[in-house]
Design a protein around this nucleic acid. Structure first.
Lengths: 187, 187
DNA sequence: GCGATAATTTTAACGACGTAAAGATTGAGG
DNA sequence: CCTCAATCTTTACGTCGTTAAAATTATCGC
């Protein structure tokens, strides 16, 4: 059954890399190990990726798309979109901790697709803020407000991922922090 | 002048490692390269550190102590301590981006000295919050409030470090975000 | 169906890394 | 001055990323 030609090696490598990443952390990502998991020799990977960083870039791209999709869904709710998107953002990070960390690490060049996708997310946030907070939009504070809520979501996500917060009920904590953030935004 | 015995190799290695870290990023940290910078062969480092992770741990410890010192100084001001500490926290992160990232990466075991130092910082934050916000302390919301402002500082620090925010005046942005955070805390 | 060609994978190899073992050099205490 | 412990170097092994060349298989024109 083992064919010489795999058929879908690129995706298989990405899937294996993702599993390896979440299982053993970013420092365990290795071309040889990823290829081994798929049952292929290392140089085979070089026909689909130019190097290890390129594989990581592929992972980041997947992550960015998934995060964007999760936020898009949360943003389609009729009301309370800011809170819903905050929840969805943090939930994604907690569900894919290493992948989320990868997305905001320093390995991604400014022109990488993942980076571009995140920039798009950022714009979405600003748009949403100016829609939900007409007052801020009027006074030209949309930018500061957007950065503020993104900081809260990003910071809390990472603190939770790192297990730096001992909380009995995580969801309750997330909601209460988001509530405080919301209070900061009201006029 | 080159003596066989270096005299203070441990610190020399840490200093070189720190320079290398800030210059080329965490992935460039290598025992061989660090030793090379100091003018010594790689195995010499193993008399002072048990392995590369141990060197990184030493760096994290230095970072944690510096951050703690910066916050202690900012916290000794007579008034506006929350704002001052927020500024100092973010300034430290921007001054030592890679070191800050290291501190909040996932390579540190829960029992490492750096981790313990950060836990102490966390407690300081809670104490300060309950001192500056007696109302929150009464209603038992100190924990949530502490997590909230830490999230803002941590998140904004990382967004700035990653150059994810195009701001003409960074200090002004920091202040306006911290102002929004402060508004979230008021009753 | 058949053969040429392109796509994919393997084998083999190079240099750099982390790190262990064993030997050389040096500073400190008697 | 001599010994000994601390410190550093030499040497070595296995793994990694990556490249070049060879082998294998799919595809397409006929």
């Amino acid at each position: 059954m083992r064919r010489y030609h795999h058929g879908d090696l690129r995706n298989a490598l990405l899937t294996a890399a993702r599993a390896l990443l979440e299982a053993k952390g970013a420092s365990a990502l290795a071309v040889r190990e990823i290829a081994r998991q798929v049952g292929v020799t290392a140089p085979a990977a070089y026909h689909h990726f130019s190097n290890l960083d390129d594989i990581i870039l592929g992972l980041a791209q997947v992550a960015a798309e998934e995060l964007a999709a999760a936020l898009r869904e949360a943003g389609s709710a009729p009301s309370g979109r800011l809170l819903g998107m905050g929840r969805a953002y943090i939930a994604f990070a907690c569900r894919n901790p290493q992948l989320y960390r990868l997305l905001f690490g320093d390995g991604l060049s400014t022109t990488s697709p993942a980076r571009v996708e995140i920039d798009r997310l950022q714009q979405q946030i600003y748009t949403l803020v100016s829609a939900e907070l007409p007052r801020a939009a009027e006074t030209g504070e949309t930018f500061g407000h957007g950065v503020f809520i993104w900081s809260v979501a990003h910071g809390l996500s990472l603190l939770l991922i790192d297990d730096r917060i001992a909380a009995a009920d995580r969801q309750a904590l997330v909601d209460s922090v988001l509530k405080l953030a919301g209070r900061g935004l009201r006029p």
